[in-house]
Nucleic acid binder design. Structure first.
Length: 507
RNA sequence: GUCCCUAUCGUCUAGAGGCCUAGGACAGCGCCUUCUCACGGCGUAAACCCGGGUUCGAAUCCCGGUAGGGACGCCA
């Protein structure tokens, strides 16, 4: 690739969102690529809050951005910069440019400028300010001393700007295409193009990595770097993320706060993995740990074209990352992010945190795609006593004989296994929270044992294994779909299993 | 409208002139496995936008067209 240029000093990059909305997927992707690049090269990654738009910036959005970044693990290396605290700086730089003849005060009203744009459009030209005040060199309006003014850049009238994008290669724009854009608004606040340049210089940024909706701003900013006498950094413009309709991602596509993905049950590394693969690749590899992403990241393998956000693949990736996660960690995520599922059952929450809780999680985790589902499966398994069931889906509802035979078989299971537990001589279970009774496993009957035993009972009562298992699964787990019943029967304290199995007779 | 950018299966992508009768993944379909649901395994269908060049040879390079996206704010 082109240009590692003269920037031999350590890489410094930033993510610079404006707090006018939640941190959405597109923002996360931009943050991620900056972060990966910095971490890959051992450079610094900074966070800057671009809150120069006083009307639309809101503190709650700043909080959302910071919370989301933290959840995702996209950590920054220096104190975040808030542009609202540096307003004087931008103003001073703009005034300096006016003094040096590189910018000027403009007294045209917004209505007048709007007319110019209408006129230009009618002439088939780009709607631009017609530079009315450019060469007047006015300090104040001749007839209206209090008339408000803005500061505009004095964009060169001829020539062109060219830069080499790290992802797209050379991009060239004629200066005639560039407006005399506003630097300082009539209320004294700076506009984006000014503050971004002043701050990127202030923070000694070496690379500007951002969405490609900023390609058109880059030439303006390059003019500013030059006017201000600064070294121009390197640019990398990332392709956009599109909704399923191939339009810019918006709220209607469910592109809400990254925090929503947290409550929906996505793992941060899964979301990051998914976003990394949207526009970047490393051969055929699909599943990456954070470390691998950092290790392999490079602009050489970044895509130039935009990508459609595909929830199905994110879901699959999330399942893959859940499967590979440490059960103890998953248990604590369930406990922290889904505490509302434990409302009224504090025992379940404490049981979740035991070794047995982690074992339960490990049996459910290979089967779910979302932490939410994991939670829904795990809660009843950690709850003491019987759980509510809905027996309407059972096959025996259509077959009285099957129902009678199954109930008889389960009764026998109850009798024989209770006897076995009592006869084992094992007085109490090893789990400190679950207390009381040992599990079947603790009296010598593991998964295989339960398997063989239930097959045998089913055969003797003329009930197919599947027909015997489903009602048992329902009362033991509270659901028609669950982790392996044999596993669960083996590891749960026998009294829990017994209590629940007794409900079979009443169905 | 003007300017900028982009263009491989439905989607994410591999591909840096011959290794491509175009590979992987998700989703789909079929089968196997199976105590449910998943997972897993095997298989199947599915793409180089079009037209010109350059070259012995082009998905790859160049030009044009077309299509899509983005920008054109005293938003960022």
């Amino acid at each position: 690739m082109s240009s590692s240029s003269n920037h031999s000093h350590p890489v410094r990059v930033r993510f610079a969102p404006s707090p006018t909305g939640f941190l959405h997927i597109g923002g996360v992707r931009t943050a991620l690529f900056n972060w990966l690049y910095a971490r890959h090269l051992g450079g610094q990654f900074l966070l800057r809050i671009e809150d120069t738009d006083l009307e639309r910036s809101e503190e709650r959005f700043t909080s959302d951005i910071i919370a989301s970044m933290k959840w995702l693990g996209l950590n920054w290396d220096e104190e975040p910069i808030f542009q609202s605290k540096r307003l004087e700086e931008y103003r001073a730089k703009a005034l300096e440019l006016v003094a040096r003849g590189l910018a000027y005060k403009c007294f045209c009203s917004e209505e007048e400028v709007e007319q110019m744009r209408v006129k230009a459009t009618a002439e088939g030209k780009k709607p631009m300010y017609d530079r009315h005040c450019r060469d007047l060199g006015l300090e104040r309006h001749p007839t209206e001393p209090n008339r408000p003014w803005v500061i505009r850049s004095k964009t060169p009238l001829a020539g062109y700007v060219e830069f080499t994008d790290l992802i797209r290669g050379p991009i060239r724009v004629e200066n005639t295409e560039i407006d005399d854009f506003v630097l300082i608004r009539s209320n004294g606040a700076p506009t984006y193009n000014l503050s971004v340049v002043v701050d990127d210089v202030y923070s000694r940024m070496t690379h500007i990595i951002r969405g490609d909706d900023h390609i058109n701003n880059t030439p303006k900013q390059i003019h500013l770097y030059r006017a201000l006498g600064y070294e121009v950094p390197l640019f990398a413009h990332l392709p956009m993320i599109l909704g399923p309709d191939k339009k810019k991602l918006s709220k209607r596509h469910g592109a809400v706060s990254a925090n929503v993905y947290r409550s929906d049950g996505y793992l941060p590394e899964a979301l990051l993995n998914f976003l990394a693969r949207l526009g970047w690749s490393h051969g055929d590899q699909e599943i990456f740990t954070i470390q691998e992403m950092i290790q392999y990241f490079s602009f050489d393998h970044c895509q130039k074209s935009s990508a459609v956000f595909n929830v199905e693949k994110l879901l699959w990736l999330n399942g893959a990352h859940i499967r590979g996660a440490d059960p103890k960690r998953l248990a604590s995520i369930v406990a922290e992010d889904y505490s509302d599922h434990f409302a009224g059952i504090p025992q379940a929450l404490s049981r979740l945190k035991t070794d047995l809780g982690a074992r339960i999680v490990s049996m459910v985790q290979p089967k779910v795609k979302l932490i939410k589902e994991l939670t829904e499966q795990v809660v009843p398994l950690c709850t003491p006593g019987a759980v509510e069931v809905d027996a309407s889906g059972l096959k025996w509802n259509k077959d009285e004989n099957l129902k009678a035979a199954t109930q008889a078989a389960v009764q026998r299971v109850l009798d024989e296994l209770s006897k076995k537990v009592a006869a084992s001589g094992v007085k109490s279970g090893s789990d400190p929270v679950w207390g009381g009774t040992p599990s079947l496993e603790e009296v010598g009957m593991n998964h295989e044992g339960v398997d063989a035993y239930l097959r045998q009972v089913g055969e003797q009562h003329g009930v197919k294994l599947g027909d015997l298992v489903q009602p048992m699964r329902l009362v033991v787990t509270g659901r028609m779909v669950s982790a392996s019943l044999f596993d669960l029967m083996a590891i749960l304290p026998w009294d829990v299993v017994e209590t629940r199995l007794r409900k079979i007779a009443a169905l």
